[in-house]
């Protein structure tokens, strides 16, 4: 913890020194300027912008989690299905996000494009982790369930889901972070009216680098909070077993 604070302070100090040397608030504003711009964002009427962006993020993330778990689990449980889906999974995993955005612009209404990008960015990690979770299910426990004639719901909620829970939470943690970056990038391209990405673009165009950085800091903060929150859930799961 001590070294973390030390690292953070040093980073800001270096930033301050470079900004002072450059003395150009367009290229690199001072930390204090960014901080006051950030305060300005909080004071201004930006809640709707932030919630719109988070809404798009969630609209992509939720189905990614749902379908990722479903398809990942099934492809690990049934080898043939896994082989069948493998090409599609490979394509989704390797497709550049720019290609996704441009294709989505052709196929979808603009406001949904960021969500689609989030979906494709988050899906592979959920899918792969769920598959790993299913492969890691303890056969000895499923045998026990068979001996004692567990119903489908007992098997699902008593054995399968708890077995893969820690894998899935770890995957959601990764997916949430990737998704947050994807939503902002896509908004930058698509420019929905209420969006963090559009705000950043406006800040750049009006040469307000301090506001651009303030938005950036805000996105970093959100990512950090999400990561910590899901980290807590992860820890809770680990401690119990």
């Amino acid at each position: 913890m001590l070294w973390q604070i030390f690292g953070g302070v040093t980073f800001i100090a270096v930033w301050q020194i470079i900004a002072t040397l450059l003395n150009n608030s367009y290229i690199l504003p001072r930390p204090a300027a960014v901080l006051s711009a950030l305060a300005g964002l909080f004071a201004g009427n930006n809640a709707s912008i932030l919630s719109a962006t988070l809404g798009r993020w969630l609209l992509g993330l939720a189905p990614a989690i749902l379908f990722g778990m479903l398809l990942g689990s099934l492809s690990a449980a049934y080898a043939r299905f896994g082989a069948f889906m493998a090409p599609l999974f490979t394509v989704i995993k390797s497709i550049p996000i720019v290609a996704v955005i441009l294709l989505a612009l052709v196929w979808l209404k603009a406001p949904y494009v960021p969500s689609f990008a989030v979906f494709l960015a988050a899906f592979p990690s959920v899918c792969e982790n769920s598959a790993a979770g299913v492969r890691g299910i303890d056969r000895r426990l499923t045998e026990m369930g068979k001996v004692y004639r567990f119903s489908l719901s007992k098997r699902l909620f008593g054995i399968y889901l708890p077995s893969i829970a820690s894998y899935v939470v770890a995957a959601i943690k990764t997916a949430a972070g990737i998704g947050l970056k994807a939503v902002v990038v896509t908004e930058l391209v698509v420019q929905p009216v209420h969006s963090v990405g559009a705000q950043m673009q406006t800040a750049r165009v009006t040469l307000s680098t301090d506001i651009l950085l303030a938005w950036t800091v805000l996105v970093i903060l959100m990512g950090y909070l999400l990561d910590r929150l899901l980290g807590l859930v992860e820890k809770q799961l680990r401690n119990r077993y």
Partner: peptide, 28 residues
């Protein structure tokens, strides 16, 4: 027929308390 099985290892569900581990094995 109904069977019970005591394995080499306990084979308890790690995420359930001991009481729930017994309860879940009982028929509905």
């Amino acid at each position: 027929i109904n069977i019970s099985y005591i394995f080499q290892e306990p084979r308890l569900l790690p995420w359930k308390r001991i009481r729930q581990n017994i309860m879940i094995a009982l028929p509905d």
